[in-house]
């Protein structure tokens, strides 16, 4: 760090950049360590509280019991009936299918409403009413119509994904700058060309926000359908564990769902950053 190290201004600039990068790296590692320390602290506190206050494990098991339950569910062959993998696969599979259906329909109908005024006038009241309704309340009706099985799971996931996608794609398309529409009009572009080349890309950040919400809602919808009656899935694992007051088992399933939720959210975020690379930098 003495002046003898600095041979040229260019060198100096490179060194400064390196130093700043190292500083940022150190800070990031520090932040991660702090998060982990906080987590460990919370787990220790939990364990101590459970022991000191002698909380029975059918009310609140300690982290150790939860970890054991988690381990016994994970340390099994992938196709084992008693492990987490088979129910998780079922839940994720149906959630994914429902998500795809709901997201596609939401985008299509949202676009239709944004593009055609009559469609907006006719459909908006229903969208508005259903949007304010807690969609979970429809679940019993869906079970009546689609039965205790995988059909209801897919329909619930699709229904819950549909609304944020509808609202977000509608708002996103409507947010298109008038100047960009003038540009396309001056070029005598067709309606479809304007939609595909200008409106849809403009709406992309909104659509990704809708997908981000939708992926969590799809999982939620599937679990609720599983609670109300299904043969397989993480929701079934939870209700079965609850039935035998295996609270540690319930906690283990919740941990699995939490991790899956975070993973799905990150997946959407990474895709978003790749697809709309211009969004945070333009203007």
């Amino acid at each position: 760090m003495s002046t003898a190290d600095i041979s040229t201004p260019h060198d100096f600039a490179a060194r400064t950049m390196e130093r700043l990068a190292a500083q940022r790296r150190r800070q990031r590692i520090g932040n991660i360590l702090l998060t982990i320390a906080g987590m460990i602290g919370l787990l220790v506190l939990w364990q101590v509280a459970v022991q000191v206050f002698q909380v029975p494990s059918y009310i609140l098991p300690g982290p150790e019991r939860v970890f054991n339950a988690l381990w016994s569910g994970l340390a099994v062959p992938l196709d084992s009936r008693v492990g987490f993998y088979v129910p998780l696969g079922s839940t994720l599979g149906h959630a994914a299918l429902g998500f795809l259906i709901g997201a596609t329909l939401g985008l299509l109908l949202g676009s239709l409403m944004a593009e055609f005024r009559p469609a907006e006038i006719i459909l908006m009241p229903y969208a508005f009413a259903l949007q304010s309704l807690p969609k979970i309340a429809i679940a019993p009706l869906i079970i009546v119509w689609c039965g205790f099985g995988n059909g209801s799971k897919v329909v619930m996931a699709a229904l819950l994904t549909f609304f944020p996608m509808l609202v977000n794609s509608f708002a996103g398309i409507r947010s298109t700058e008038p100047e960009r529409l003038d540009l396309m009009k001056a070029l005598s572009a067709s309606r479809l060309q304007t939609y595909l080349r200008v409106k849809l890309p403009t709406a992309a950040p909104y659509i990704f926000a809708g997908l981000d919400m939708g992926v969590v809602y799809a999982l939620l919808g599937t679990i609720v359908a599983e609670f109300l009656g299904a043969q397989e899935g993480i929701g079934v694992v939870i209700t079965q564990a609850q039935a035998v007051t295996d609270v540690a088992g319930v906690f283990a399933a919740l941990v699995i769902l939490g991790v899956v939720g975070i993973a799905l959210h990150l997946l959407i975020k990474v895709t978003e950053r790749r697809v709309i690379h211009w969004s945070d930098r333009h203007k």
């Binding site: 540009l183 211009w278 203007k283």
Partner: peptide, 12 residues
């Protein structure tokens, strides 16, 4: 041909 204010290039 029209040239708009603020360039109006499409960022994508």
């Amino acid at each position: 041909g029209v040239v708009f204010q603020n360039a109006t290039l499409l960022p994508w």
